[in-house]
């Protein structure tokens, strides 16, 4: 696979969060940051250095982290609480539910080191259920940025949305796949890759291969790949490779998982008639589930799910683990082919 055709610049989404905190802090002095003994690795340190008086150390106490922030938000502050997703919202879920969501106060929960790719730390630290936990919760906004640039924008946007908000972040440095100019609006997904926007050059090559494979008409995409988070890079890699063999797809970045962008999902389900969802999270209850709920109610089409197959993770190198648990571009390609077969049968 020729990965060189994409940006090779890699930055962790947690870094984008830290940068976003500083911007949000400059824009609004009500923004405060609370952290549970993970100031450096959640990149909250960037805010702490800039605004030491608005940074609060809570210690290893995630239940207090959520509830102290709830108190501050009820008073009128805009607290961001930083920890690892396994512990916040993993450990303090009920506190978040009652004191943040039911109170409907604007606490921003940043779950860093989410997903399988925390690697060697193993299953205890590989949070793969947080999207399910958070998207089931009324009033909660759930965001899962694709790269560091988007994480920065999501953080800045969260400071202004007035709602309980969860932002899912990763530890590993991952490819930058959006640009500063890419539009970002909470609740509005973004089409990352679309056959109609392909360069003339690439279109020419595509026509060639289409003649060879007699694939779908008019260059219309045959499958909508809907993903969130850094795995979208794998989705883009898969889509480009599929295009080379004459299978057109559209890749949609559903960075907001709640409220999910129903319109875009329905629109592309109608165009393609088949969907593959991609996420570094349990298949049960994740983004795939959210998409399936929209489809079932509005426009049912066959769907395949790329994600964690109802299993805990384990220690290992991040890439090895993604391979073992079938979340790499090759697995997305297989899912696309499978869903096309289902659609056509």
């Amino acid at each position: 696979m020729n990965k060189k055709s994409f940006s090779t610049n890699k930055v962790a989404t947690r870094q984008g969060y830290g940068e976003g905190l500083v911007i949000a802090g400059e824009a609004d002095e009500k923004v405060v940051v609370l952290c549970a003994d993970l100031t450096e690795s959640t990149r909250s340190i960037l805010f702490k250095e800039k605004f030491p008086d608005r940074f609060i150390e809570i210690g290893v106490a995630e239940q207090a982290l959520a509830t102290i922030a709830a108190g501050m938000a009820t008073y009128g502050k805009i607290p961001f609480i930083s920890s690892y997703a396994a512990f916040s919202p993993g450990r303090n879920w009920e506190q978040i539910r009652t004191t943040i969501a039911l109170n409907d106060v604007p606490v921003k929960i940043a779950g860093a080191h989410a997903g399988l790719t925390v690697g060697p730390d193993g299953a205890t630290h590989q949070m793969l259920e947080d999207i399910a936990l958070m998207r089931a919760m009324p009033n909660m906004v759930v965001m899962y940025p694709a790269d560091a640039i988007e994480a920065r924008k999501a953080t800045v946007a969260a400071a202004k949305n007035g709602k309980p908000t969860y932002i899912r972040l990763a530890r590993e440095k991952t490819p930058i796949i959006t640009t500063e100019k890419t539009p970002f609006e909470i609740g509005k997904s973004h089409v990352l890759l679309n056959p109609s926007t392909r360069s003339a050059d690439a279109q020419g090559r595509l026509e060639q291969s289409r003649k060879a494979t007699s694939s779908g008409p008019h260059g219309d995409p045959q499958v909508a790949i809907i993903g969130a988070g850094p795995l979208l890079y794998e989705a883009v890699v898969a889509a480009k490779k599929l295009a080379e063999s004459g299978i057109e797809t559209v890749v949609i970045n559903s960075h907001t998982i709640k409220p999910i962008d129903e319109q875009t999902i329905i629109k592309y389900a109608k165009i393609t008639g088949a969907v593959v969802t991609v996420e570094e999270h349990q298949i049960n209850g994740g983004l795939g589930g959210a998409v399936a709920e929209v489809l079932a109610r509005n426009f049912p089409v066959p769907q395949e799910f790329v994600g964690m197959p109802d299993s805990f993770g384990e220690s290992g190198d991040p890439d090895e683990l993604l391979e073992k648990y079938h979340m790499k571009s090759a697995d997305i390609i297989a899912a696309v082919k499978k869903v096309i077969t289902r659609k056509n049968s």
Binding site: P120, D121, A123, T124, H125, S315, G316, D317, L321
Partner: peptide, 22 residues
């Protein structure tokens, strides 16, 4: 901490006999 090891980065009861809890 390697793939497939019984010696997980954080200890797991179901993987290594003698570890009483995860």
């Amino acid at each position: 901490r390697k793939l497939g090891s019984r010696l997980q980065g954080h200890p797991e009861r179901k993987r290594l006999p003698g570890v009483e809890t995860t």
